[in-house]
Design a protein around this nucleic acid. Structure first.
Length: 491
RNA sequence: CGGGGCGUAGCGUAGCCCGGUUAUCGCGCCUGGUUUGGGACCAGGAGGUCGCAAGUUCGAAUCUUGCCGCCCCGACCA
């Protein structure tokens, strides 16, 4: 590939791609726009899944599974929904191939045309609400709190590893409630869970907010989101939680009888996060030496590398290494003892740095004699010699400390990249020179938002929750405004 | 779909402008040995439809035309 870098964006894209490829998270695939998630990358996703799944279950949700295929007609039942997704749907038209009578290959059998085409789900609201119609009759059936882990397909024009792939893995929650208040509370609760997960597990600080009408989910009344800041100053939407009102209940005719035997449509929410979170993690923390993974979700938290001369030393260190690994494992630490003799220590150090393993322990003869080990942090690259005595506790504490410091570092960066702009020139200059979130007044109209996007490529990421009210003038039109909103260029 | 860059061994590349024996180098791989506290070293070895097709030419990785593919930027979007 070319080494010519034509812009900062391209430079950054290369850095990002290298991190993922060299870190062993994923590969390009034979199908353009799709991605192969490698075992290490999938192990990371599984850690994230497990934590999220627990948070969902702790709040009363259950997992289920709905079909991959959706009858084409379902999509058009909700007007805004079809408008939003029609342009990016993969469509199944036939169910059989046959040998090409003209030559070697196979062709689509024209006899095997489906009566109604199926679309591969870009999201599952429609197929799920079609099902909910049969599940919900009475207020006693509510609330219905379902989540599914699934893959979805969105035929995007341009893709990027983890951040935007044609097929991606995610979870999507779909809930039904008796009242608007309850559904809104659910929407907010799930937003809080996402924020909690991003900050406390991924160590990525996020801003909770509401989307403007332009950025709202197709079919939602309100879209809430968490927005993160990447190291290149671009924003990344890391999760969304939608209040759907009665839109889908009406589209799929889902009514229930309340306690007074009055018939009404149910109130809905949906919420999701995807493998994009892996991309967020990579971009938020990594450096030029590779990935940096937060300990709480790192597939491997500690790697032990023996350093030896000759077989005799190797044997002694193997024994000690296995012993230490067992000790750490017993304390609940995910640890690997790498006694592979094919690679030298220096090579292993570099490899585990590329993979972002938070802590490395090196032990050689010198350590055996002194009863110590060398402990190195991935995030700061600091090395120190620690006694074997009480090592487990120290490592546990160190993992916690790394988790916290990663978050603090990302938070400091993020906060340094929220800047106020009070006039148009300043706004544009900040976007071009500094990046990050720009806090500015906006007149509240979709037209102005669109105009700003066209001029600068910046969009309104969100109106932060609990946003302070403040008189001001729109950055573009000068019309009156009551609050600032967050603008940024985004992924 | 537009703009840019590129396609030479598993990976990364030189050579191309200005055509000329057997296509360069590094990593990786195989064999043997020495090594091992930050990506080891020595010796030997295997590995190639130079993206595909046509054309020009005595002769094409190199020139011309067409096609295919990939990456980056933009439009679309999580």
């Amino acid at each position: 590939m070319s080494k010519e870098i034509t812009s900062r964006d391209a430079d950054y894209a290369q850095w990002y791609n290298d991190l993922i490829l060299k870190g062993g998270l994923a590969d390009y695939s034979a199908v353009k726009g799709c991605m192969v998630i490698k075992p290490y990358g999938f192990a990371l996703w599984e850690k994230m899944q497990a934590a999220l799944d627990q948070l969902f279950k702790d709040t009363g949700h259950e997992n289920a599974y709905f079909p991959l295929f959706i009858p084409k007609s379902f999509l058009s039942r909700e007007a805004a929904h079809v408008e939003g997704f029609a342009k990016e749907c993969a469509v199944v038209t036939h169910y059989r191939l046959k040998n090409d009578p003209e030559g070697g290959g196979v062709i689509v059998d024209p006899e095997a045309k489906l009566e109604e085409e199926l679309i591969v789900r870009p999201t599952s609201e429609t197929i799920i609400w079609n099902t909910y119609k049969t599940w919900i009759q009475s207020y006693r059936d509510l609330p219905l709190l379902i989540n599914q882990w699934a893959n979805v397909v969105r035929w995007e024009m341009r893709t990027r590893l983890f951040l935007r792939t044609t097929e991606f893995l995610w979870q999507e929650g779909h809930t039904a409630h008796a009242t608007a208040e309850e559904a809104i509370a659910e929407t907010r609760q799930m937003l809080d869970i996402y924020a909690d997960f991003a900050e406390n597990y991924m160590a990525v600080p996020v801003i909770k907010g509401v989307k403007t009408a332009n950025e709202r989910f197709a079919g939602a009344v309100d879209t809430y989101c968490i927005e993160a800041m990447m190291q290149d100053g671009k924003a990344l939407q890391a999760g969304t939680s939608h209040f759907l009102g009665q839109n889908f209940a009406k589209a799929f005719d889902v009514k229930f009888s309340d306690k007074e035997n009055k018939l009404d449509y149910v109130w809905a929410t949906s919420w999701g996060v995807s493998t994009r979170l892996v991309g967020a993690l990579v971009m938020a923390h990594s450096d030029d030496d590779g990935l940096i993974l937060p300990p709480r979700i790192a597939p491997l938290q500690v790697v032990i590398v023996p350093i030896y001369k000759g077989n005799e030393q190797k044997e002694a260190l193997d024994e000690k290494g296995k012993e230490l690994a067992a000790l750490l494992k017993k304390a609940g630490i995910r640890v690997k003892f790498d006694s592979n003799d094919n690679n030298r220590p220096g090579w292993k150090f570099a490899q585990y740095e590329l993979k972002g393993v938070p802590v490395r322990i090196a032990m050689g003869l010198r350590d055996l004699q002194n009863g110590t080990v060398e402990v190195a942090r991935r995030d700061t690259k600091e090395k120190s010699s620690l006694p074997m005595e009480g090592l487990t506790e120290r490592i546990s504490a160190l993992l916690d400390k790394i988790q916290q410091q990663l978050y603090n570092r990302a938070l400091t960066y993020r906060d340094q990249h929220i800047t106020r702009a009070d006039n148009w020139n300043e706004f544009v200059r900040l976007l071009d020179e500094k990046g990050g979130f720009i806090s500015a007044h906006w007149d509240g109209t979709p037209e102005t938002e669109e105009a700003i996007k066209e001029k600068t490529k910046a969009t309104i990421r969100c109106v932060p929750l609990d946003n302070p009210q403040e008189e001001g003038k729109c950055i573009l039109t000068g019309r009156p405004s009551r609050e600032r909103v967050l603008f940024a260029r985004a992924y």
